[in-house]
Nucleic acid binder design. Structure first.
Length: 206
DNA sequence: AGAGTGATCATG
DNA sequence: ATGATCACTCTC
């Protein structure tokens, strides 16, 4: 059985982490032992203090974003719009509040348990094609904020099959989704996705 | 394009 | 305390 990616995977530049996450496998173990998993196909990098679109922009440090200030390799899960959760992985170093948002996965394990959690989905490609959708599908909520992804308790990331990992030319890059009023950071190319993968969120960035 | 939904955050 | 905002999703 594969082991979780090591701490060193996360302890580096957040843009490198966001790119290297593509093709890796996100795994969730439910309280009853059921295993759910999918291949990461889309991410975004949030670059910390200078990044005007990040929760930690300008050095903001609050109860919500505290996890981003901690050591790398932990999950930063936050609640937004009164109903949605989004999951990030903390990268960089302690006190360097950067994180990579997981925006979409291609579900591969536990589909029978994922469908009922995503009642509005009509196609497989609607199951996890967005940051809040995949949290619904894998039952990721604030209880998992701060979870150590390297410990491998209930949530971790393990190496994906070599065939799933994109070569650099297969990675499409574009501006992050849902960002406004962040000046030059609004349009910087910090969104990464596997070109041609049907499970990414729109826009697909041919 | 608009509604839904409530925690979070900067003001004061 | 209060009001605006929000790294979104669904339905029309």
């Amino acid at each position: 059985m594969p082991r979780p990616l090591p701490r060193t995977f996360y302890r580096r530049d957040v843009v490198d982490v966001a790119r290297a996450l593509l093709g890796q496998r996100l795994v969730r173990r439910l309280p009853d032992g059921t295993r759910l998993a999918g291949l990461i196909v889309e991410t975004e990098a949030y670059c910390g203090i200078p990044d005007k679109a990040a929760h930690t922009a300008n050095g903001r440090r609050t109860a919500r974003n505290e996890t981003m200030w901690g050591p790398p390799g932990h999950a930063y899960v936050y609640f937004t719009y009164g109903m949605h959760h989004c999951m990030n992985v903390v990268a960089g170093q302690r006190d360097e509040p950067v994180a990579a948002l997981i925006r979409a996965i291609e579900p591969t394990v536990g589909l029978d348990a994922i469908w009922p959690a995503r009642s509005s989905a009509r196609r497989v490609t609607d199951l996890c094609s967005g940051p809040a959708k995949l949290c619904q599908a894998l039952r990721i909520d604030r209880e998992l904020n701060g979870a150590d992804l390297v410990g491998g308790a209930d949530l971790w990331i393990e190496p994906g099959p070599a065939s799933a990992r994109p070569r650099p030319a297969q990675i499409a890059v574009g501006p992050r989704i849902g960002i406004a009023n962040a000046e030059e950071w609004t349009t910087r190319p910090l969104r990464f996705l596997i070109r041609g993968n049907a499970h990414v969120s729109p826009p697909r960035l041919t």
